[in-house]
Design a binder for these strands. Sequence first.
RNA 1: GCGCCCGUAGCUCAGUGGAUUAGAGCAACGGACUUCUAAUCCGUAGGUCGCAGGUUCGAGUCCUGCCGGGCGCGCCA
Length: 557
Amino acid sequence: MEIYRQAIAEAVKQLIPVDEITLEVPPDPKLGDLALPCFPFAAILRKNPAAIAADLKDKIGGLDFVDRIDVVGAYLNFFLDRETVIRDTIEAIRSKGGAYGSSGRGRGKKALIEHTSINPNASPHVGRARNALIGDSIVRLMRFEGYDVCVHYFVNDIGKQIAMLVLGAEGRDDVTFGDLLDIYVDVNNRIKDDPRLEAEVFELLHRLERGDKDALERFRRVVDICIEGQTRIFSELGIYYDVFKHESDYVASGATDEILQRLEATGRLERDVEGRFVLNLDGYNLPSRAPYVVLTRADGTSLYPLRDIAYTIDKVKTESEVNIVVLGEDQKLYHQQVSAALDILGYKAPVSVHYSFVLLPDGKMSTRQGTVVLLEDFMREAVAKATEEMAKRHGEADPDTAKAVAYGAVKYAILKVANERNVTFDWSSALSFEGDTGPYLQYCHARINSIMRRAGGELPSSADFSRLTEDIEYELVKELAGFPTAVSKAVDEFSPHVVANSIYRVAKAFSTFYNQCPVLNAEDPEVRDARLLLSTAVKQVLANGMALLGIDPVESM
RNA sequence: GCGCCCGUAGCUCAGUGGAUUAGAGCAACGGACUUCUAAUCCGUAGGUCGCAGGUUCGAGUCCUGCCGGGCGCGCCA
């Protein structure tokens, strides 16, 4: 659809001296495929818009893909030649296959994306999972665009919380991932009325910071359990990481000390009344009460921002053309502070992608009130539901397909919402497999596959697309043609939900087509062949779009 | 108190650098399976786009104020 827009825009520019031309999609397909509002030209030509439109209609030329132009008020409505659009689109999908929709803008370029990076103290809840889901989809989008992507996970293996876990797990060599949250809660409670325990926590931290081998090992053991547990869950969802960087390494290697020295040299490093090292961010106009970020405790141990600055510098030094970090909305100010610190040291900070939290119908998730929804539980419930639904239909359920359907529902439920909006999680709609859901897309894909299977043998190598005369067939093709635009927008804005939206529209249009137009039993072989190729194209686009969301396109369900 | 984000149908959400008549899903009601998978489709009903101003020939979309929700504002990460 973009090529037609551009061609029309060029033709208009031949007649009217404007830089930018906006072509819209009319509210009703009956009005046309593309519309040119002539209001903006009124000021330039000093004529009334309707007259300009009428004039333009007669003068515009060289558009052989345009079938007809209507003037409606100040609008010039273009009706494209259906056969041309259908042929162009289906041919493009056929020739590009799995790459249809990619602009190829990332070819030969590197991208680095950090996402997830959860506190390794417990099983992730669906709020945390939103980070991984959005991050992973962005990874997929970037790879689709041709980028050589390296996925980072920054492991928080140091800090007070981890030290508490290490202490709580002491003397137990049977600690599992599932035990960690209880241990953490337990230590947290004990620490309240036992100051000595807290002192012990800091002593442990201190030893780690001094490079104590034994402490390091004990920390690593607990952290490894966490990472193993978390990545197991994420890998179940098809989410993988290329590089794990540990915070403690930046302390052990002396990188954090070096950062302090370099900041010292800028004159912005100060020591506050308590003896902590703080960085003066004056002049960066940050929305905080005081322009300071605290880098160390009074005892000299590092705080998270210092370690993160060291890590982030490490990341930007890889000289990736694109450097992205996915963070919750609670990290907005924090990221600005890190960016300022990097700026002070002469580096360009990564681009941040922020998302809002997942809420429950009656409020926020609360660990203390036990209202968190664990990702694992969500996944398990979804698999149970998928298995049940399949058994209902086929008597039995293929476990792999059940998982694919279940996880498709899980991912889609979260990814279809725009990043900056809060997701309201409620079990019934999150586990719904009807309507605007992941399984709906998969079902559509499976139905097309079923047609292909029944068609048997080879697909026709070509078809007479002039035989696709139903309105819905043309509407469907236009949705297919809109997919590349959606992908580009999703990449530009780091917004997977744009892709989700686009393929939902494709699936919706296909379902209408499916109910209205028989493919295998079409009125004659030529229509059949054309519909067969159209359906194949739909299958390809659905598969491409689902891949970008990390949803498996099942062959039958 | 200050800063950022969000507010669209009963509920959950779309709405493309302002523009022709605001769209889906769920829930409700009524239809469609001896016919390519009914996890589907078709129809009906449902909206002063939070409120009030402003800019514009034209505002769900831009600006200001207010209200409501989310997030943040030095020793958690």
